[in-house]
Amino acid sequence: MSQYQIAVVVGSLRKDSLNRKLAQALVKLGPPEFSFKYVEIGDLPLYNQDDDGDQAPSVKRLKAEISASQGVVFVTAEYNRSIPGVLKNAIDHASRPYGQSAWAGKPAGVIGTSIGSIGSALAQQHLRNVLAYLNMPTMGQPEAFIHSNDALYDADGNLNEGSKGFLQGWMNQYAAWVRKHA
């Protein structure tokens, strides 16, 4: 039986998203007492503070899923040197109304991949700034800026051995982070 449910927020809506593929590989590396739930963010309306008193069903679902988790893994793409708008929209929704943030206190892990050589580093830094404001203890080390290329996965979508070892280390550290902060 799982003791820790971890929400997985993928900051890309693309069907063949590199970050969704990374998230799928990463959750396979989780310890047995961890379960992972992908949180849908593509069905959320654009955030409008006027709606705080009567949030859409999709927003209520998002907040409930985050609230039910003991931690959150953000797997983010980098768009124009920052986080994707869809991810920021989800963060804003689940943090509102003011004083009722579903994110507060949830231990976070931040990771991402891109075809660029800096592997989503700037998006991750921007996201870390937002998470600090939301009072999410965010794992600082190891950082993981994954350069996505053909050698990252085999033909079946499994991580190559070198990347698997590195990401296993990242997951082990994140699991320890959750145990410490959840």
Score class of each variant (00 low, 15 high):
Glu65Gln: 10
His181Lys: 14
Leu127Phe: 01
Ser163Trp: 08
His147Pro: 05
Met139Tyr: 11
Tyr4Phe: 13
Pro32Cys: 10
Ser82Leu: 02
Asp54Ala: 15
Asp92Ala: 07
Lys164Asn: 15
Ala108Tyr: 05
Asn80Ile: 03
Ala25His: 07
Leu13Arg: 03
Tyr98Arg: 00
Ala94Phe: 03
Glu143Met: 05
Asn149Leu: 12
Leu87Lys: 04
Pro142His: 11
Gln55Gly: 09
Gln124Lys: 00
Ile66Ala: 07
Met136Tyr: 03
Arg81Cys: 11
Pro31Glu: 15
Asn19Asp: 06
His93Ser: 08
Asn160Cys: 13
Ala144Ile: 01
Ile6His: 03
Glu40Gln: 13
Pro97His: 10
Arg20Pro: 14
Phe34Asp: 03
Leu134His: 10
Leu44Tyr: 05
Phe36Pro: 00
Ile66Tyr: 06
Ala23Pro: 00
Ile66Leu: 11
Asp51Arg: 01
Ser117Lys: 14
Leu18Gly: 05
Val110Gln: 00
Glu65Asp: 11
Arg96Val: 12
Asn172Thr: 13
Asp52Glu: 05
Leu62His: 04
Gly119Ile: 01
Asn158Ala: 14
Trp177Cys: 05
Gly109His: 04
Asn48Met: 13
His147Ser: 09
Lys37Asp: 05
Val73Ile: 13
Trp177Ala: 01
Met136Glu: 02
Gly53Asn: 09
Lys164Gln: 15
Leu13Ile: 02
Ala102Tyr: 02
Pro84Ser: 12
Leu26Gly: 04
Ala132Arg: 15
Asp16Cys: 12
Gly105Cys: 07
Ala175Arg: 08
Gly105Arg: 07
Phe166Thr: 12
Val59Asp: 01
Gly165Ile: 14
Ser2Gln: 12
Ile118Ser: 10
Leu134Tyr: 10
Val27Tyr: 07
Ala102Arg: 00
Ser101Arg: 04
Leu62Ile: 02
Arg61Thr: 15
Pro97Cys: 14
Asp52Gln: 05
His147Gly: 06
Ser2Asn: 12
Pro107Arg: 09
Gly169Ala: 14
Arg128Lys: 14
Ser117Leu: 12
Lys63Pro: 00
Pro32Arg: 10
Leu22His: 00
Leu22Glu: 02
Ala7Pro: 03
Ile91Gly: 05
Asp54Val: 13
Tyr174Arg: 07
Ser12Cys: 06
Ala77Arg: 07
Ser120Ile: 02
Phe74Gly: 00
Phe145Ile: 06
Ala94Met: 04
Lys21Ser: 08
Gly11Gln: 03
Phe166Cys: 10
Met171Ala: 07
Leu122Tyr: 02
Gln141Asn: 14
Val130Gln: 04
Gln3Gly: 12
Leu22Thr: 00
Tyr174Met: 06
Ala102Gly: 08
Ala68Glu: 09
Gln5Asp: 00
Gly119Met: 01
Val73Asp: 04
Pro45Trp: 01
Arg128Gln: 10
Lys180Arg: 15
Ala151Arg: 08
Gln55Asn: 12
Val27Pro: 07
Ile41Val: 11
Gln124His: 01
Leu18Arg: 03
Asn135Glu: 10
Arg179Gly: 11
Val110Phe: 04
